[in-house]
Amino acid sequence: MIRPATADDLDAVVALEQACFGAEAWSASLVAGELTADTRVVLVHDDDGVDAYGTVGVVADVADLHRIATRPQRQGQGLGRGLLDALLDAARGEGAERMLLEVADTNVPARTLYERAGFTTIATRRRYYPSGADALVMERVL
């Protein structure tokens, strides 16, 4: 089930951050900020525990996808796509007309997810990530 995240989900989301992003994981204070910010929509996939989460910021007519993270043992089961679809709907509901995101050019599963959802690459940020990977800036009109 996909539902809005609450403050009670903080520890579970922080654990997902660590499992999915390692050294690049957001801190508990950054996650807490996402959960409380007025311009954010944070959703979790919860089947007897939080298995995935996603967050998007919406300002005026632009939505920025900040994160989608799925517990490694649950990847490839459609949780990320379900969250992405729900976040797209939520962004539309908040008045967004387009969504932007950044993804590492080396993250083939995420790139495939976004391309299948109708995102196209509009720019590249060279050596953007600490690993040296480029960031692809992708966009989808809502």
Rank of each mutant, 00 (worst) to 15 (best):
E139A: 05
D48R: 13
V58I: 14
E97Q: 14
L100D: 04
D85R: 14
A23F: 00
L136M: 07
A86C: 04
V14H: 12
T39L: 06
G76F: 14
I68S: 10
G54H: 07
G93I: 08
T106R: 13
V58N: 02
S29G: 05
L142W: 10
T124H: 04
S27I: 07
V103H: 00
V62L: 13
A91C: 09
A23R: 00
R81H: 06
T70D: 07
R3Y: 12
R140Y: 09
T112Q: 05
R98V: 10
R116P: 01
R74E: 12
V14K: 09
Q75M: 14
R127K: 03
A28K: 06
A37I: 12
D46R: 07
R92V: 13
G57F: 04
L83E: 01
V31S: 05
Q77V: 04
G82V: 06
A110R: 03
L87R: 09
D46N: 11
Y114I: 12
L79E: 09
D105I: 07
Y129V: 00
R67H: 04
L43N: 03
L100G: 03
G33H: 08
D8E: 15
A32L: 05
V14W: 10
L30Q: 11
D11Q: 11
T120A: 04
T121E: 08
V137P: 02
L100R: 07
L88F: 04
H45T: 08
N107S: 10
E17F: 10
R92D: 07
A90S: 11
A25E: 10
Q18V: 12
R126I: 04
A63P: 08
H66T: 02
A7Q: 15
M99R: 02
Q73K: 03
G78V: 02
D46V: 11
R40P: 00
D9A: 07
I68F: 12
